[in-house]
């Protein structure tokens, strides 16, 4: 009797312990998958020994692409009807002007027009991906490290190409090293500055990835509390906190799109005007 009871208790404890420790379902929700909305299977493609499958995050990015192209085609057309468009076009115009006048102009300065297409595209792409992730059953492509790393690599190349175009190839790499550095320090400084160039996009990628995953993980963890504690008492608390985090995520979605664009613009400005 007693031994049986002890065994049952220890079993249930093990189950609870195992259940509490097994948080793989959270990661599973955030990770990329080969199924759309968890139901529709997506094709697996292997090219040149690479897994080029159309995953859920790829579909989300394409969705963002389609939404942006439609929205901005309409917006651009509305300028042919009226000088001051209304509705959605007006709202998008505010954002475009924000990127142009508040991000690109102050950080890059003279010659900022050249980088506007990149900055505007990156801002709206990240913004749309972030918001798509907030819609139920959708996925957040910008919470995938591969996606954010790719965006950061593009940003890195835009910065380097911008610097080379404005200062010339040798001028740009010479300008990386500050003035007045002793000659014997030059090799070390070169390595340090080169590392600096690489850490900037690395920070960009990690920042966007971490911010976009963290909110989702916290929401899933709060909901998971209900199932781990196996009680209804915790439901109102979990829902209230999850809602609060969700609202916070709307803010984060905007802020992260802004920060990624702002920092890219800042790095471009530093590469273009090296004398500062």
């Amino acid at each position: 009797m007693i031994t049986e009871t002890i065994k049952a208790v220890s079993d249930s404890l093990q189950v609870v312990e195992h259940g509490a420790e097994d948080t793989s379902w959270i990661v599973h929700h955030i990770l990329d998958s080969h199924e759309l909305f968890g139901i529709i299977p997506l094709p697996e493609i292997h090219l040149f020994g690479l897994d080029m499958s159309i995953t859920q995050h790829v579909v989300m990015m394409w969705l963002a692409l389609i939404i942006l192209v439609i929205a901005f085609t309409k917006t651009a057309k509305s300028y042919k009807i009226s000088r001051a468009p209304k509705g959605v076009a007006n709202f998008l115009e505010v954002l475009v002007l924000f990127v142009k006048d508040e991000i690109a102009k102050p950080t890059i300065g003279k010659g900022y027009e050249m980088f506007l297409p990149y900055l505007l595209t990156v801002f709206f792409f990240i913004l749309t991906c972030n918001f798509l992730g907030l819609i139920p059953f959708m996925a957040t492509a910008s919470s995938n490290i591969s996606v954010t790393a790719s965006l950061a690599i593009i940003s890195f190349f835009v910065v380097q190409i911008g610097g080379v175009i404005k200062n010339g190839f040798f001028g740009y790499f010479k300008g990386l090293i500050p003035h007045g550095v002793p000659t014997w320090l030059l090799p070390i400084m070169f390595v340090v500055e080169l590392l600096g160039l690489v850490t900037k996009p690395f920070a960009l990628a990690i920042r966007l990835f971490a911010n976009m995953s963290a909110g989702h993980i916290v929401i899933l963890a709060l909901i998971g509390l209900i199932f781990i504690l196996k009680t209804f008492i915790v439901v109102p608390v979990s829902i209230a906190f999850a809602l609060f985090i969700y609202l916070l995520e709307i803010l984060v979605a905007l802020i992260q799109a802004y920060i990624f664009t702002m920092l890219s613009s800042l790095f471009i400005g530093m590469a273009v005007h090296q004398d500062h």
Binding site: V27, I30, L31, D32, I45, L50, D51, M52, S53, I54, T55, H57, V58, M61, W62, L65, T121, V122, F125, A141, N144, I145, S146, V147, A149, S150, L151, I153, I154, S213
Partner: peptide, 16 residues
């Protein structure tokens, strides 16, 4: 979470 998938990266760059 920190796994990097080259395929997805290529798709991202292409899409962007």
């Amino acid at each position: 979470l920190l796994d990097v998938s080259p395929g997805l990266m290529i798709w991202t760059v292409l899409t962007f």
